[in-house]
Design a protein around this nucleic acid. Structure first.
Length: 607
RNA sequence: GGGGACGUAGUUCAGUUGGUUAGAACGCUGCCCUGUCACGGCAGAGGCCGCGGGUUCGAGUCCCGUCGUCCCCGCCA
């Protein structure tokens, strides 16, 4: 192949097929960079040696597909090209076949500047010819294979589950597929194979995995596509630790396939700890944690600054940012999303001038070095005291401060990435890939709009054994913000890498009585539960083994390994922010006949 | 649902306080060139300035609307 020719092949006859990546026509001598998936090799056409062949080569243009027969020749040392793997050799052409021509392309795979993404997506087949995309897709392939090999070696069976399944009204919006045979009824595409994989455990398959497409009809982000791929697995009789070991095992294999030897086991961190130190449940450990500097101020200082004395005062340290100009400080303000009365002090110098003693203590406590940026996030003194959640480890008022600070911490780090350099790969894997298990999530989250407790993970997650008694009055207290439900911890865990949630899993409920207790605690009557999950509740009654598992986002893993900043870079045919495929132009309206067949009528928008 | 950025040759971009014929680079076409490798040189073609309205003597430039792409919040059990 084009990328595989080496000096040791010189003298050999070779046939290379590929695209014309670039041509350099010097008149009597023509150089063609011939490209295939493996790389490029220079092909030479020399008029002096073969005039007829040279004339034919003059017709070659960018992205023509050709076959060249010739002899591999080691180049003269002064014509080596050290920039390419095949730079010490070239193919001296003896025969040329033009297999196909190309009209002028909207852009060239060999271009050094990228066209905008709209163009790239519309002509995806050209975009995918680029080296970077070839590498990303190759990375994806290698990761998939490494995961498959590892899991198979650990006794996991790869088992498929249906795409046309049943809509469950929980969670994300479903993509629906109308049934022609049952007019008026719809299948749903799975948001994940959650219930099927649990049923597989009940079916005796013991260890299951699948690299599987999932579908969620929600708004997109750089790291969210409507269809995405999960590495999904489930196993019987697990401790949390046994699931983690499997995940650490296949991630080691996957990163190893790309030449990265990662260290296991990953560190672990309680959810509460993650919130307090990083303000988010997916902490990026490459950046410094928060420092609570409340005690660096005197009570009078706090009063003068209108800082709430009972809420955390968070110092966010971003290394090596340097002194900020007035304008740069102004730019910080819109980056700050104030939740629940949180306020930002972006001008640390002003604090130092007015409160030198406090500032010195803060600098000390936060480990501030010269040129480090310190920004404070505090609770406004106006926040009304509330005892509604006083018993929680992290109260909603505190959470608001932590969360605001957490978003700002990441936003600052992104804005000043060039200055602190902490996102640059160093080659030191302990710095480049900071994995962490976040554990002991709360089982329930308070939903302010519904004024009730909701499942934080999903309702099949097992609570901690010792928290079970707190479920007792769940059904009665689900609408009470002070309910003991708030203290129930889930046996749920997330694996996080560099601030990206790679995956999420849990030990499941395997007893029907506990499962229905959970549904009750979510305010669901037995009848509601039966309508939605009847088949599953019934399955639980026929000898269900304890089981648990996890699902990891393959796209996100590949994205990080490829160093890409959007999922679209690692998905061959992705969708735009409005969920459109620009290449095939989907979705589209369908014919009246198709709709009639399905018993569907489109209600035209007014106007 | 909300906020922000962008939209000018095939492509990436520039285009001054609104003012004659809208520029550059790459790509494309032709000619020249025997060691290039992002080859070089000369000449040339190529524009619904996203679309629709408005302000103005005059709009790529100002205003309103709309469409598209991207980012963020909400949302994503």
């Amino acid at each position: 192949m084009c990328g595989a020719v080496r000096p040791s092949d010189s003298g050999q006859k070779a046939v290379l097929m590929g695209w014309v990546n670039r041509r350099r026509d010097l008149g009597s001598i023509i150089f063609i960079d011939l490209r295939d998936r493996s790389g490029v090799t220079q092909v030479v056409f020399n008029r002096e040696q073969n005039a007829v062949l040279h004339d034919k080569a003059e017709q070659l243009r960018n992205e023509y597909v050709i076959a060249v027969i010739g002899q591999v020749k080691k180049r003269d040392a002064d014509t080596f090209n050290p920039n390419i793997a095949t730079g010490e050799v070239e193919l001296v052409a003896e025969e040329l076949r033009i297999l196909n021509v190309s009209k002028q392309l909207p852009f060239l795979p060999s271009d050094t500047v990228l066209p905008n993404e709209e163009m790239r997506l519309k002509y995806r087949y050209i975009d995918l010819r680029r080296d970077a995309m070839q590498f990303n897709i190759e990375t994806r392939h290698k990761v998939s294979m490494a995961v498959r090999d590892y899991l198979a070696s650990q006794g996991f069976y790869e088992i498929e589950t249906p795409f046309m399944t049943r809509s469950t009204p929980e969670g994300a919006r479903d993509y629906l597929v109308p049934s022609r045979v049952q007019p008026g009824s719809f299948y749903a595409l799975p948001q994940s194979p959650q219930l099927f994989k649990q049923i597989l455990m009940i079916s005796g398959f013991d260890r299951y995995f699948q690299i599987v497409r999932c579908f969620r009809d929600e708004d997109l982000r750089a790291d969210r596509q409507p269809e995405f791929t999960q590495i999904d697995l489930e196993m019987t009789y697990p401790q949390q630790e046994s699931v983690w070991a499997v995940v650490e095992g296949f991630l080691t294999a996957a990163f190893g396939a790309m030449g990265h030897k990662i260290k296991t086991p990953f560190p672990r961190m309680d959810y509460d700890e993650a919130i307090r130190q990083f303000g988010i449940d997916k902490p990026d450990l490459r950046l410094p944690a928060f420092t609570d500097v409340r005690d660096c101020f005197t009570a009078e200082d706090l009063q003068e600054l209108a800082i709430h004395p009972d809420l955390p005062v968070i110092a966010i340290r971003t290394p090596k940012v340097g002194e900020l100009s007035r304008k740069e400080r102004d730019d910080i303000k819109p980056m700050f999303v104030a939740k629940g009365g949180a306020r930002v002090f972006e001008d640390f110098k002003r604090i130092s001038n007015k409160f030198p003693a406090a500032a010195a203590k803060i600098a000390e406590k936060a480990g501030m070095a010269e040129n480090d940026l310190i920004v404070l996030v505090v609770g406004s003194a106006q926040i009304a005291a509330s005892s509604e959640h006083a018993h929680r480890k992290v109260t909603p008022q505190e959470l608001a401060i932590y969360a605001s600070a957490g978003l700002l911490r990441v936003a600052l780090a992104q804005k000043y990435a060039e200055r602190h350099g902490l996102f640059v790969k160093t080659g030191d894997l302990e710095k480049d890939f900071r994995f962490v298990w976040v554990t002991n999530f709360p089982m329930y989250e308070w939903d302010e709009s519904e004024r009730q407790w909701m499942a934080a993970h999903h309702p099949f997650t097992s609570p901690h054994e010792e928290d079970m008694p707190k479920l007792e009055n769940g059904a009665q207290t689900v609408k009470d913000p002070k309910s003991a439900l708030s203290e129930v911890r889930a046996r749920a865990y997330d694996v996080v890498l560099n601030g990206t949630e790679l995956g999420s899993g849990s030990i499941r409920i395997h007893r029907q009585d506990i499962q229905s207790k959970i549904f009750q605690s979510l305010g669901m009557t037995d009848e509601e539960a039966r309508t939605r999950f009847g088949f599953f509740l019934e399955a639980l009654e026929y000898g269900t083994p304890p089981h648990g598992g996890i699902a990891l986002g393959l796209d996100r893993i590949v994205m990080i390994l490829a160093g890409a900043d959007s999922l679209r870079e690692v998905i061959p045919f992705p969708k735009t922010a409005r969920a459109v495929d620009l290449m095939v132009d989907a979705p589209t309206p369908v014919s009246e006949a198709q709709l009639k067949d399905l018993g569907i009528q489109i209600k035209k928008p007014v106007g």
